[in-house]
Design a protein around this nucleic acid. Structure first.
Length: 351
DNA sequence: GATTCGTGGAG
DNA sequence: TCTCCAAGAAT
């Protein structure tokens, strides 16, 4: 966009925003604390999903002090169902840090905000602009889509481009409203599919609209093909502990994992389970099919067939002599198992 | 820069 | 049922 057009663009956008913005709960009484909580909840999470969580959260934990002093279990319980649970743990860590270093007053310096756990470039900019009205740029999924359409960009461009545009465009006086307006436009008008161009307040600035390329911009990434994979996972217990093995070249992340084997094409999960049983226990450990879990890791779509069994003393000695296995207790499991698929499998067996 | 982390909405 | 993707951060 040419520099002389930026002012008109801002005015059209802000005027539209004042009239059409959604009355979201964090927009009334936008204290730094409420803006912070909302921005963390909204990371990779749709507004509609976050609303009931936000209301419940701020009702139970209305300020930094109550958040800092609450047990992390309670925070996780309030978060349960939202996903990305490290967000909840980082929220707790950050609250304690704010209480310790700044007496429970939310810091208003960008670099300080950025240093808090769970807060990256986007969220720091969002808090500083929305809560403190500082002219900090923000770039999220909505804004990327709006920018590539406005500028009619039909190729992949570096992330820096978006941040440079927002840095140019964000007004000194009305950063809070401008940033929210850009996101609101992407969320309600400049939709990924079938954007509502006739209702767009800035359509006259839009190159994609001018060239009728709204449906081909943004360029969709050439995603890796989805691969369907069947795996067999063993949950073997002995005296309350669970058998882990070293993960050498599994596509499942982590150094340690549950015994696992991919089901080769043409073989049934049952046969794979038996052959894994043969390898590990000489086929002498009775195992039982428990469940099938669905899970995705990047482009792999996994059907995990869970088998359970109880080891005997002799088998456990045999395995320990081999040195590539470990009996983990419940407390160790979470730390040792990187993959949530494995944690799900163990969790499922507790039921 | 590429991966991983969850869950649900919407077409 | 299947796919894409959502107010990203951490590594």
């Amino acid at each position: 966009m040419k520099p002389e057009k930026i002012e008109g663009f801002r005015n059209s956008l802000l005027k539209w925003y004042h009239k059409h913005r959604r009355p979201l709960p964090w927009r009334m009484n936008p204290t730094p604390y409420r803006v912070w909580i909302s921005e963390i909840m909204l990371q990779q999470t749709q507004v509609k999903s976050a609303i009931p969580y936000f209301n419940r959260f701020v009702k139970r934990l209305p300020d930094i002090a109550s958040l800092a002093q609450a047990p992390v279990e309670e925070i996780l319980a309030l978060w349960s169902g939202l996903g990305y649970y490290s967000r909840a743990r980082n929220l707790h860590k950050a609250a304690r840090k704010i209480l310790e270093y700044w007496g429970g007053i939310f810091p208003n310096e960008y670099k300080t905000v950025l240093s808090l756990p769970g807060i990256g470039r986007y969220t720091a900019g969002a808090i500083c602009s929305i809560a403190f009205n500082q002219p900090q740029p923000v770039v999220d999924g909505n804004i990327r889509r709006v920018i590539v359409r406005l500028n009619g960009i039909r190729s992949y461009i570096p992330e820096k481009y978006f941040w440079d545009r927002m840095t140019e465009w964000v007004p000194w006086e009305k950063a809070s409203e401008f940033n929210q307006a850009m996101m609101e436009l992407g969320a309600t008008i400049c939709l990924p599919a079938q954007p509502l161009c006739p209702r767009c307040p800035v359509r006259r600035y839009c190159l994609a609209k001018k060239q009728n390329l709204q449906s081909t911009i943004p360029l969709t990434k050439p995603r890796k093909a989805i691969v369907k994979v069947g795996v067999v996972i063993l949950v073997i217990r002995y005296r309350g502990k669970v058998l882990l093995t070293r993960q050498d070249d599994s596509f499942i992340p982590g150094k340690w994992g549950l015994p696992v084997r991919i089901v080769p094409s043409g073989q049934s999960p049952e046969e794979t389970a038996q052959s894994l049983n043969n390898k590990l226990f000489g086929g002498r450990l009775p195992i039982e099919s428990l469940a099938v879990l669905k899970h995705s890791i990047t482009h792999n779509r996994i059907s995990a067939h869970i088998y359970t069994g109880n080891a005997t003393g002799i088998i456990s000695e045999l395995l320990e002599a081999e040195g590539r296995t470990y009996w983990a207790n419940d407390l160790q499991l979470d730390g040792m198992l990187t993959s949530s698929l494995f944690r799900k499998a163990v969790q499922r067996c507790r039921k």
